[in-house]
Amino acid sequence: MNILKWTTFPVLVLVIVMAVINSVLTPGFLTMSSLSGFLGSYAPLVCAAVGSAVVLFGGGIDISLGSIVCLVNVVFITMQGYGWNVLTSAALAVLVGVGVGALNGFVIGFLRVNPLLTTFSTSSVAAGVALWIMPTPGGQASMDFVTWYNGNWLGIPTPVYFIAVVWLLWLFLSKTPIGIWLYALGCDERKAFASAISVAWLQFFTYVFAALATGIGAIALTGSVGSGDPLVGLPISLNAIAACVIGGISLMGGRGDSFGAILGALFLGLVSTTVLAAHVPPFYQDLVSGVIVLLGVIGSVSLSRKPKLVS
């Protein structure tokens, strides 16, 4: 395979560059404990980015993932507040998130409404419900769970398992015909329909999968922050998409792979850590990281494709 044609190649370079810069700025960055902390903070974004990528493969877009994170986080914490155990409340919370995904999938796949506008509306619905359940930040996740999440499990940092579950779930699905159909759908919806592919169900599936992946990410996020906050996930909506674009996944559909999304999310995380590690004055941190991400996207996009005027 021609490495320059590999859509994930640019982001791989970006991640390596940022990792090198980071380890120079913070000598201990590449140690296990530091990496574990880093992954703990960014596993939620990675999970959401994989979900977002699957929607993008099929030619859709989902900007409701951040709100789904908020909703799952709030439900999870609330259930625990009622004394449910971690596993049950986590499962229920993820299920609620998947419900939002199913709503997305139904409206987009079967009612054929524009995905951007649909997920925009449902993000308001999900965020509204989160805010309704928990108007102000509060609650407490079980200490056992928080300790478990921020430590190692079987010798590997726990956040890695969250990423692995989501990614393996997708890899599993991509080895079934769904993987082929999805890229076909992203390439051309009408041809996919004419080729006897169930377009509506496939679209439905992508949004449900995205919600599931994001829900799992939201559980990780709860482990990372340890409490409930109805606004905690909002930046994820758009960061997950930014991660995909940096990872070489086309917004037009049918192009890119999920590994790119993971690296894209890690790149965004590395940018934030680098800005912190470089002792940028606090008021300039947002600006600097914004500009770095912008440069990263410019680099990734101009490496992976040339803007074509007329085909």
């Binding site: 082929i180 076909a184 992203g186 390439c187 041809k191 004419a194 080729s195 049918g254």
Partner: peptide, 13 residues
């Protein structure tokens, strides 16, 4: 089965 002049092929596969 139809083979069509508009082609049913997916260029990315």
């Amino acid at each position: 089965v139809i083979t069509s002049q508009e082609l049913s092929l997916f260029t990315n596969h």
